[in-house]
Write a protein that binds this DNA or RNA. Structure first.
Lengths: 351, 351
DNA sequence: TTGTAAGCGTTATCAT
DNA sequence: ATGATAACGCTTACAA
């Protein structure tokens, strides 16, 4: 592996000059720059980022810590982050915490050890203690998708409360009164907020909350199936289900099928997050779609801005609008129509 | 950020001794080790991997370069890699080449620059020139899922030919004679091999190959939909479709629906790779499932073995068996039965 | 069992 | 516009 010194010798300059060329410093003679670039090409030289980072104390890398890489929502967020990072010349370390606070803690230590310049994290739960290693070292951090109690730093979230309220209201308007709410862990803010929206919609419609119809589990298909079986066994059973995310909704569809019933004929279903990429295949599934790609993009931008500016600005919170996509099929069941509504009572808020 | 020197001072030892404790060297006095560990804990010291890597010339990181992170097949592979890596204390850099040779080249340069110890790659195409930077620098590499012409290094693949033949034969046994083959880029070996298996099955059944029924596009839903529309517009139209991967199959389902038809009533469909996690939702879809998780696991193990052994062993090729899952529904369409067949003529081959 | 010295490849700083 | 020097934090090699 050729080093900067090899390049310097071949170009008859000092290593410092090569470094200047590599970093696009303005004060380099055009001829010199040419010679250096030729030497770089001839040797197939690639800078050693490890050495650069050690000296410059910046790695131009960020960590992206996600709770579940097998849920298509998160890879979409990741692509937004990647695209933003690529534009700014940052490398993304993608970590999968598996919704597990311990695994998340291990990854945090790992990426601190890797000297990442900043961290994007969708935390496994809303306990700020889990983020202490970041705060202690003053590592710029943007929290994605979820609230963390007592943490006031940069954050990007979808409007969980508003979206949940809208979905629930939709079911109510269709005539449903026994609506089950199948949610993720009670310790995540998205579970809490979507439950709050559900509760608000019921209250506004004068429908009493039946605690039996509210379940907290995991944001996974298996958990969704279990919870669905549980609520469908109730007497009387709910006529509609609100799934707090796409994986839970898939579990619901599965469980409904296992009981010899069908969505939407026998049980109505709505959910948060789209079930992409196969969304078109469920023309009956009304969803509150969060702009996943944009969420990643905005979060990364926020982080890069913070890395540039330091603590000049106060923390920023970006709340992204959620749009409800009402899908319904007509006639034979093969028709497809998508009705897309902008959410009136949400907006991008800079706090 | 405390350094190894801070720890050394607090524990009244030299930095070298701290380094020994960190790396689990055997020749350290128990009392000393205790003092050092206490100092580490008290200071909240985390080793600087950048400095360690610069000196030791090993980063304990590997790159995983995948063609499409939004296809659930690849995240599953990634989880296998991650799990193997975590066990061996390696960090995985996940890169998404987007099936794009240029983007792949940029990522290769980036991870070389990052000094990764090794690379796992599912190459965007079968041209060995794309992997030259790895070969030139003698960076241990394992090629996943796809062949690279003229590259003889470690590799892990599924049995594309056998799986394709099995799927095609299945359709033939169901009575189909006009079977469309919708594939990915002709430059990827998986497209080529699956086409070869398709061809072999037709030939064995004495069915002439109709070039109009064979299409090469991209491994994406959109491409699958386009190709489906194209072949369904033929006169006479095919009665069955073999999709070369899950995304193409989803596109086929979509396009069939858009034409007012249904799978499997109007058009039969089989595909390579499962459409997980929504597999249960398509109880009609017969697939050739590659063991994605295991593929990642084996590939990582192969790489770690290579990193340990150097070039002691000749290149190893692991071909993983593909299992065909025949799904069929009875009666109302809600029944689910899965018939799983081990593939008789495939095996793990160590070459 | 522990320590000293040197150096990994780059860039910050200061000088010319 | 270019160069000399030192330093980033750690581990290797050697010494005690």
């Amino acid at each position: 592996m050729p080093t900067i010194n090899d390049v310097a010798k071949r170009a008859n300059v000092s290593p410092v000059t090569v470094s200047r060329v590599l970093n696009g410093a303005p004060n380099v003679n055009d001829m010199t720059r040419l010679r250096v670039n030729r030497a770089i090409a001839e040797l197939g030289y690639v800078p050693n980022i490890v050495a650069r980072s050690l000296r410059s104390r910046r790695t131009r890398s960020i960590a992206l810590i996600l709770p579940d890489i097998t849920n298509p929502f998160w890879p979409t967020v990741a692509r937004g982050v990647e695209d933003a990072a690529q534009r700014d010349g940052y490398t993304v370390l993608l970590c999968n915490s598996d919704e597990n606070a311990q695994k998340q803690a291990r990854y945090l230590e790992a990426v601190i050890s890797q000297q990442v310049d900043g961290v994007l994290i969708a935390p496994a739960n809303s306990d700020a203690a889990n983020l202490a290693p970041l705060r202690d070292r003053a590592i710029p951090t943007v929290v994605i998708d979820r609230r963390v109690d007592g943490w006031d730093g940069d954050a990007v979230r979808g409007d969980s409360v508003g979206g949940a309220e809208l979905l629930t209201r939709h079911l109510i308007e269709l005539g449903h009164r026994r609506i089950a709410m199948l949610s993720g862990p009670a310790t995540t803010s998205t579970s809490q907020d979507r439950f709050a929206g559900y509760q608000a919609a019921l209250q506004r419609a004068g429908i009493p909350l039946d605690p039996d119809l509210v379940r907290f589990g995991e944001f996974r298909q298996g958990s969704g199936a279990e919870m669905t079986h549980a609520v469908l066994a109730l007497q009387p059973a709910p006529t509609a289900i609100f799934a707090a995310n796409n994986a839970i909704a898939l579990g619901a569809i599965q469980a409904v099928g296992e009981r010899g019933l069908q969505v939407p004929q026998d049980v109505a279903l709505v959910c948060f997050d789209d079930v992409s990429p196969s969304a078109q295949l469920f023309p009956f599934l009304t969803v509150a779609e969060q702009p996943a790609y944009q969420m990643g993009l905005e979060a990364a931008r926020l982080l890069f801005a913070r890395l540039d500016e330091g603590d000049a600005h106060p923390p920023r919170l970006i709340t992204l609008p959620v749009r409800m996509i009402v899908r319904y099929s007509c006639g034979s069941g093969r028709g497809e129509s998508i009705l897309s509504l902008p959410l009136p009572h949400t907006a991008v808020v800079a706090a």
